[in-house]
Amino acid sequence: MDSITLHVRFASDGTVAEISERPVGLTPQQWFDKLSEAIGMKAYQTFAGGRGVFKVARDQIEALKTAAVA
């Protein structure tokens, strides 16, 4: 399985400020919400300093990105 790590950075108010692999047309928060709904929080790991990562299969991310822009 080819996996990918998506990095997330949160603002001080708890909203998502930056997230990798974000499709054009979605805000960072919208992309985080879509990932959370589709993948679940089991693939998410929280880090200190307002950061975290999703670790998921590359083909799953590509499918979600395609669906998000369709």
Score class of each variant (00 low, 15 high):
13 D>P: 01
16 V>H: 00
26 L>D: 04
31 W>E: 03
22 R>E: 08
32 F>P: 02
17 A>N: 10
29 Q>P: 03
7 H>M: 14
21 E>K: 12
5 T>P: 00
12 S>W: 05
9 R>F: 07
29 Q>T: 11
27 T>A: 14
26 L>M: 13
31 W>F: 12
32 F>G: 02
12 S>K: 08
10 F>D: 01
27 T>I: 14
4 I>M: 07
31 W>M: 04
21 E>N: 14
12 S>L: 09
23 P>Y: 10
8 V>Q: 02
22 R>S: 06
6 L>F: 01
9 R>P: 03
33 D>R: 06
32 F>D: 02
14 G>F: 00
31 W>R: 03
31 W>L: 05
15 T>S: 15
16 V>L: 07
10 F>T: 01
4 I>H: 03
33 D>W: 07
26 L>Y: 06
24 V>C: 15
30 Q>V: 09
8 V>I: 12
13 D>M: 02
24 V>F: 15
33 D>A: 08
15 T>A: 10
27 T>M: 12
7 H>R: 15
30 Q>T: 12
8 V>T: 04
23 P>V: 05
14 G>L: 00
15 T>M: 11
21 E>Y: 12
8 V>Y: 01
14 G>M: 01
20 S>W: 08
3 S>K: 13
20 S>M: 04
12 S>Q: 10
25 G>K: 14
31 W>Y: 12
21 E>G: 13
23 P>S: 11
16 V>W: 00
